[in-house]
């Protein structure tokens, strides 16, 4: 039996991009970032997918990770790429931390649109009032596209309007 090559994919992409990548690599073992998608759905359709992780909204090089096989190899792959994976069996669409951050950011954008406060004051309030590690706008900076994609995936999967992205967030994504 030949040893299969391992591939780590941490790219930002659409669901179709991710599916196309996996289809191209049926003969490999893949660990893939699925921050914006449902990992269970991908596991069910792509046996070459050995592990999943959520790196795209991380600011500290720590990420949620799950391996259905070959956990040691998968962990080593992420560690070699400079990540500290935190293994979990909690596999939900958008993972735990990214989807929570995405909804906090979304509410902050709605508040800003409604002129509740400036972005700076909202960030300051969340850091110094409830000790958040970062303010929502600082968190979102440069990651608006990922947050919108994650919210849209959640809205599509749940049919819940709570995930409707704020107009100002969508505008940054345009």
């Amino acid at each position: 039996m030949s040893i299969r090559e391992w591939i780590l994919d941490l790219s930002v992409g659409t669901k179709q991009d991710k599916e196309a990548f996996l289809t191209l690599h049926v003969d490999k073992n893949v660990v893939m970032d699925l921050t914006c998608f449902d990992p269970q759905d991908f596991y069910a359709r792509f046996p070459q997918l050995k592990g999943v992780c959520a790196t795209l909204l991380s600011e500290n090089k720590r990420c949620e990770a799950h391996f259905r096989e070959n956990e040691l190899e998968g962990l080593a792959l992420l560690q070699a790429a400079g990540w500290t994976p935190v293994v979990t069996n909690m596999l939900v669409t958008g993972f735990v931390v990214p989807r929570t951050i995405a909804t906090i950011v979304n509410e902050a954008f709605y508040s800003w649109e409604e002129k509740v406060a400036t972005q700076g004051d909202i960030d300051r309030a969340m850091c110094f009032g409830v000790n958040y590690p970062r303010g929502p706008f600082a968190w979102a900076k440069g990651k608006e596209k990922i947050i919108v994609l994650l919210l849209q995936t959640l809205q599509e999967r749940t049919g819940d309007r709570r995930y409707q992205p704020a107009k100002s967030l969508l505008a940054l994504n345009a």
Partner: peptide
């Protein structure tokens, strides 16, 4: 943080998603 007179002000609104 300066904020408008709106429900929950800043923290009690934005933190709801947490």
């Amino acid at each position: 943080a300066l904020c408008a007179d709106t429900p929950g002000f800043i923290v009690n609104r934005v933190a709801r998603s947490f």
